[in-house]
Nucleic acid binder design. Sequence first.
DNA 1: TGTTTGGCGTCGC
DNA 2: GGCGACGCCAAAC
Length: 249
Amino acid sequence: MNQDPLLAGLAALAADPPQGLLDRIAARWVRVPGPIGELAVAFTDQGVAYVHEGDGFAEAFRKRFGRPLLPGARPPAGLLPALRTGRPSGLRLDLRGMSDFQREVLEAARTIPRGEVRPYAWIAERVGRPRAVRAVGTALARNPVPLLIPCHRVTRSDGVVGEYVFGPAAKERLLLAEGADLERVRELAGRRVFYLASDTTGVVCFPTCHNARRITPRHRHGFRSVAQARAAGYRPCRTCEPARAGLTG
DNA sequence: TGTTTGGCGTCGC
DNA sequence: GGCGACGCCAAAC
């Protein structure tokens, strides 16, 4: 129970074939096809730890994690489906070594469905730091597992897609491939509309929320802020949860 | 429309 | 341990 973990580790090293221990220290890696070109993916016994573009992977991994890297025989279970579908599909992630803030930001981003987008400020509010919008940006910029945690689905409040690890163009391509209606988002943003409401349900949503997409045109009303929608008698959608407070755009 | 200022978790010194 | 600068931003001039 209260045995020194170091001693336990040494004992295990002495008793077991070194493979198990090695896998606890080192990471394995494989090359796999991704939606925007070849990817290199590192994983441990805990799950996928790092996703990087094919070029310069080993260098980047070493710089960031500073732990041994070994070739892997095959991709971890669930990786390929997750990359293909853009859904978690039971894939385990190894997010050890991240701060609480970053982990919470990543978890929040992970809940954004395929084909939809949410603003940075939405994440900030969800993790209980409504004014840490920019810090959310930096946390997402350091997302060790892009694509698997879909930080590309986090976009700016003004309707612009914003920055991305693989570049804004890749972000846009990914979102379009997922079926996000960026054209529509931009058209609405041009009219300063950042929320859509239905006068049959009395609910207000983010424009890409699957509930918002089904609003019949003549029952659809656009709003610039949740506050204005509220004032008009609408309540926030329970699925996409547009801000309870600020978030005007 | 564009620019400025606010705000905050990280990282490097 | 502190301090200042830096970013996938956002609201206010």
